[in-house]
Amino acid sequence: MTIFDEIAEKTGDDQWEEWKNQVLGARDEIAAFVASRRQGDEAREFINWFEGSFNFCLQILKFLHEQTTIPVPRLISWVLTENSPQKFGPFIISDFVKRVHLSNILKDPANRQRLYLNPNIDRRTLDIIFDQIADIMLQLFQFNFDHIGAILKDPASNAWSVTRRPLTYSMNELATTAFYPIDKFPTAPFKSLTQRNLSTNAENARERYIARHLFAQLVNKYYIDDDYIDDDYRPFKLFCDDFRPQNILVDPKTLRITAVLNLEFTNTIPAQFSHKPPWWLLLAGPDSYLFRGHTIEEFVAAFEPRLEQFLQAMQRFNYAARKPFDVDVLFDNCLKEGGAGVEWLDEEARVGLEPFVQMKMKQSKANDSDCTKFL
């Protein structure tokens, strides 16, 4: 399992706590400001706050309101950093939806410490939920785009198009937990790892290097559909990395989905991602099962009945391609073929192995030294 950069995590946590305390200290000012943006409403009292990890994406929120029946909270107003109270940051004002998280309905009540699907859940409950999830996925799939990235509406033509680079969940994690420079995000696939403490010994560095390069060599064999090779992999489809039960609100009595939240990581990406069933059918993904001491066979045995219920069939996962930190774990347990050692690497990757190991060991020593001073 990849250990995140301790310095980056502590720095981020400290920055978050400082920012949160500043915001909570300005509650009355923020409440008055929000009231001023709502036509006809008087100033309201600050009631409560809810902690989330990221931001909403304003553009995709407006797109879904215009183009689909997917239930997203109504957008009331939005503000950039320079116009926000005390310049706290950009934000949106939307309706508050008071319901329960879908994950609370689906999770195992006997395992409060871990998020697992209730093994005794009523099949009809899942049918009601899965029907709605399928409808949402189909609505997202109906739109075609000719580039990969974030969509934007042209105010002159009212047309939606891809005009900016994508922002994915994994990109955010690389920036916040590995200190990847934001201004250096490439438009092409990542070719190297920048986290200094990714490996703590030379053997581990070799294993991670080999697993990632062999995983990349398997992409064309297992991942790219022939239908898209002759057309530059177009059209691209809307896809959200963070679309999961924890970000879906439901009415606990009827099980109807009332709100889909946290859509900031919605981008247009290759359609193969949208072709696959949700990875969260057991609430926890295969990596979580492996990290918690289970085997991939146990995951498959639990996953297959739910997969059968959701789509009746699935040919392969695209999960590892969206989880850059632990590709080696999923590769070793699920995709490794034959010996899958250094001899299976192509010539370019083989030449780069030892320089990579030396670089990671140098980085690891520097990281240990900095951690001693910092922590």
Results as ranks from 00 to 15, higher is better:
D230V: 02
K253M: 14
Y180P: 11
T266Q: 08
N267K: 00
T254E: 11
I224W: 04
N267G: 02
D227H: 10
P235N: 05
Y233I: 04
I210D: 02
A216G: 06
P277Y: 02
V219T: 15
L311K: 15
L255R: 14
P270D: 00
P181T: 00
K253R: 13
I248A: 05
D232P: 01
W280K: 09
E203T: 06
Q246F: 09
Q315Y: 09
R212W: 00
V219Q: 14
D226C: 01
F239Q: 02
P181Y: 00
P245K: 05
P252V: 09
A313V: 01
V219C: 13
N220A: 13
Q312T: 11
D242Q: 12
E298H: 10
T268S: 13
Q246S: 15
T200H: 14
Q312C: 04
A301H: 11
F215C: 04
L263W: 04
A301Y: 06
I248V: 13
R292A: 04
P181N: 01
N262E: 15
E308F: 08
F317Q: 08
L307M: 15
Y319F: 13
A211G: 05
V219S: 09
C240M: 00
N220Y: 09
D242N: 14
D225T: 02
R292P: 00
I257V: 13
N318T: 12
I229A: 08
F215E: 04
P245H: 06
A205G: 09
L198M: 11
S199V: 04
I210N: 00
G293I: 07
W280D: 15
Y289N: 07
P252S: 08
C240S: 14
A259G: 13
T266W: 03
R206S: 10
D242F: 03
Q315W: 07
A175E: 14
L281C: 15
S199R: 06
K184H: 08
P186M: 10
H213K: 15
M314V: 08
V219N: 08
K191T: 12
W279E: 14
I269K: 01
S274K: 13
F236L: 08
Q246T: 13
A216P: 01
M314S: 14
E203K: 11
Y233P: 04
G293Q: 09
L283S: 09
R244E: 12
V250N: 04
N220I: 15
N267M: 04
L263V: 01
R292C: 05
D183T: 08
F310K: 06
K237D: 02
V250F: 04
R244V: 02
N267P: 08
N318F: 06
N247T: 06
T266P: 12
D183G: 10
R244K: 14
Q195A: 14
L307D: 02
R256E: 14
D251G: 00
L263I: 09
L311F: 05
H275Q: 15
L193A: 01
P305K: 10
P277K: 03
T254K: 10
E298L: 11
F239V: 11
T268L: 07
Q272S: 12
Q309H: 12
D242H: 05
M314T: 09
A313W: 03
